[in-house]
Simulated assay, not measured.
Amino acid sequence: MNEIFGPTVQGEGPSAGQRCGFLRLGGCNLSCHWCDTPYTWDWTGISDEGRAYDPRKELNSMSVADVLRDLLAMDVDLIVISGGEPLKQQKRIAPLVRILRGRGISVELETNGTVVPDDELIELGVRFNVSPKLAHAGDPLHRRIKPPALQKLGKTPGVAFKFVCKSHEDLDEVSSLQEELGIGPIWIMPEGKNVTDISRHLGNLSDEVVRRNWNLSTRLHVLAWGDQRGV
């Protein structure tokens, strides 16, 4: 585990603005050069940030009971499980999700769409925010696009496919994936870790996103708090 924080708000996608708590897990099977959470996986400094984080400082083990205690203390109706890539640890988080759902708390899980979700998480009513990575992320196609995982995720209730974009060429790539895999609904989110970049890319993309019958998301937490951790 990397960090637990909140109450805050969900910053992206269909639930943007909703009060929530975050459970951020460590470790990722991709290495996006523009990643906004390199402290969860970049132990060698290969991201654009160029900093090698220390896993001994960034990651720690907690029992389900302790994690549950900290999440419930926030008194929120939504818990977002993020990373890293949380589906790499889905068997470990299933007991926690089961308890949260039993208490009537909604759970959203942020995933890059490369790992097939277990039926147990689907049956528990987890809502998946799937963010497949495009070519500009830097990883080769065979690592970042996994059709079996994306197609199974696409059949889950409440799913949203959220793509980080900054150009019309990125939107063309999204169109190709949608046509090939039949995924949706589509949300487009501007790439950026600061207000200037987000605003520039949002302005560049918005008209074309609407024209293509897709949804548009900003990064509300960055607009509100900048590139801070734990908000």
Score class of each variant (00 low, 15 high):
Ala224Val: 01
Val107Ser: 14
Thr111Val: 10
Gly182Phe: 14
Ser176Asn: 15
Ile105Gln: 07
Pro148Tyr: 01
Leu220Arg: 04
Val130Arg: 02
Ala224Asp: 12
Ser206Leu: 14
Gly184Trp: 11
Ser199Tyr: 03
Ser106Cys: 14
Ser199Trp: 10
Pro148Ala: 06
Pro55Phe: 04
Leu71Val: 13
Leu23Val: 04
Gly125Thr: 03
Asp197Val: 09
Gly125Trp: 01
Asp70Cys: 04
Ala16Met: 08
Asp207Leu: 14
Asn204Asp: 14
Arg219Leu: 03
Ser199Met: 10
Ser61Leu: 14
Leu72Asn: 00
Thr8Val: 13
Asp170Trp: 06
Asn194Cys: 10
Thr196Ile: 13
Ile93Ala: 02
Leu171Asn: 03
Leu150Asp: 00
Arg101Lys: 13
Gly138His: 06
Ser63Ile: 15
Pro95His: 07
His201Gln: 07
Gly17Val: 07
Lys155Tyr: 03
Glu120Leu: 09
Ala135Cys: 09
Gly13Tyr: 12
Leu153Lys: 05
Val174Cys: 09
Pro140Trp: 01
Leu181Phe: 07
Val164Leu: 05
Arg200Cys: 07
Pro95Tyr: 01
Thr40Val: 01
Val222Pro: 03
Arg24Asp: 01
Pro38Arg: 02
Met62Lys: 11
Pro185Lys: 10
Ala149Ser: 09
Asp48Arg: 08
Glu12Ile: 05
Leu71Asn: 07
Asn213Lys: 15
Cys35Arg: 08
Glu58Gln: 13
Val80Asp: 08
Gln10Cys: 05
Ala160Ile: 08
His136Asp: 07
Lys91Gly: 02
Glu169Asp: 14
Thr114Ile: 12
Val107Gln: 06
Tyr53Phe: 13
Arg19Trp: 09
Pro190Val: 03
Thr114Asn: 07
Leu121Glu: 02
Pro147His: 03
Arg56Met: 11
Asp75Ile: 15
His33Lys: 12
Ala224Arg: 13
Thr40Phe: 10
Val174Pro: 01
Asp54Thr: 02
Asp36Phe: 00
Gln89Lys: 02
Gly27Phe: 09
Cys165Pro: 07
His221Glu: 13
Asp207Pro: 10
Asp118Ile: 11
Gln89Thr: 02
